[in-house]
Design a protein around this nucleic acid. Sequence first.
DNA 1: ATATAAGGTATAGACCTTAAACCATTCAAT
DNA 2: ATTGAATGGTTTAAGGTCTATACCTTATAT
Lengths: 245, 245
Amino acid sequence: MLIKPAMNLEQVSPKKVSDFIFDRLEEAIILKEFMSDEQLPSERDLATIFNASRITVREALARLESLGLVEKRVGAKGGTFVLPITRNSHLRNRDEMRRNWDSMIEVFEYRMVVEPGAAYLAAQRIKKEELQQLRDYVTASIEPDCTREAFRSIDVRIHLSVAKASGNAYFDHAVRQIRTKINPALDLMPYSDRVKVNNYEAHRDLIAALEAGDADRSRDIMYRHIEHSAEAIRARVFADESFED
Amino acid sequence: MLIKPAMNLEQVSPKKVSDFIFDRLEEAIILKEFMSDEQLPSERDLATIFNASRITVREALARLESLGLVEKRVGAKGGTFVLPITRNSHLRNRDEMRRNWDSMIEVFEYRMVVEPGAAYLAAQRIKKEELQQLRDYVTASIEPDCTREAFRSIDVRIHLSVAKASGNAYFDHAVRQIRTKINPALDLMPYSDRVKVNNYEAHRDLIAALEAGDADRSRDIMYRHIEHSAEAIRARVFADESFED
DNA sequence: ATATAAGGTATAGACCTTAAACCATTCAAT
DNA sequence: ATTGAATGGTTTAAGGTCTATACCTTATAT
């Protein structure tokens, strides 16, 4: 009985403080915790928030700026401002999606397992306040004056809130990670009343199942919801160019 | 429609190269990639492997030593050697489990979702060589001369191999993470023929389902297998002290 | 004009990491 | 007993990262 230990040690490189700050701010922007044209906290405030020096914060901001995610303005009313996501910034275009389609599929596969699991747990534990917050999100998402970007932001928050309501840090973290990967793709999706209504109905039904404490139904609704989402992304990314919007 | 952005920026601290090296080596030891009394690569070799300086490697090893995970010996035939896991080393005892039971439950919940998901995918993709490797593991695990530690090591490798066979890096990483958390608890479990046979049968049935390409059955077998495992751990950790082995 | 609040810049010191060299210990071969 | 080889133990110099602090520049409101 000889079992060969599969030593598999990989090289490591240091992770600088500025790397962590960059990652967190990039994630916040992708998850639309900051909307377009919104101002990030000042460099001095970010330094306090992250418990880092201003120079280190500036290093992270410089990377965000070089990627076209933020823009700096000096003077009074100056600051660091989030730029609108354009089709060509930061690996967010369709060609990039096609080239990295295999890795997108990996994320989808993971999502199909993790998010329904989170919904299953959330149905058993979600609190009244969390349910109310979800209802408010869903109500806001269906209003006529809900812009495309607001709609996208609300969608993110609904899913992250469900993950949080699972009361399990692993699901919370995983859903965040998954969403950070797929949100650029979701931002490519068309925005129409039909899309709004489809999402509204799925979210509404999910909330009803969560409220009823029906874990199985919550899981199934979530599964179908994101299955539909994945299929829509696939269709969009591989659509004939002539249908480009 | 006012949606308040929930800015939630946490403090960060730098992650040193020696932290990464420590983490990786600790994981390797917990996952029994190195068995008791086995020698780690020399400091110079580890420095090459991790692309780090020897001093940095030594810092990581010093932490492992202070936790009682390894022991150093100087001179020819010297080196860094893995110590046997004792009940009192490194948060591995029963009291520690009880105190952190809530976080153990979190891991179990996550595991119940992730590992069946990995098995589901693996059934669709596993390669012949991977199946053969799994069969070899399972065969070795049931042999009469299979020691407790060898049995534990094989068990880990079976589950990690299934995750790898899913062909999805997210599942692979998650299962590794999960296993690193729960393996100390599994090491507390009693070792008997009954345990060996129960595990053998579960693993054997899983391999049969994987070989048949039956994703649903693979998922269900994995689910029941780890459900049983979680229940056994719970029973063990909260057993009356008088039944201590 | 001035005050203010933001980004832009500069310097010194602490800490981490690397590279290279050398020391100390042990065991096997001679 | 001597030597060689492989290991851990130690030292030093240089460079990079991060912090703390201070000061400069810009643009807007008053």
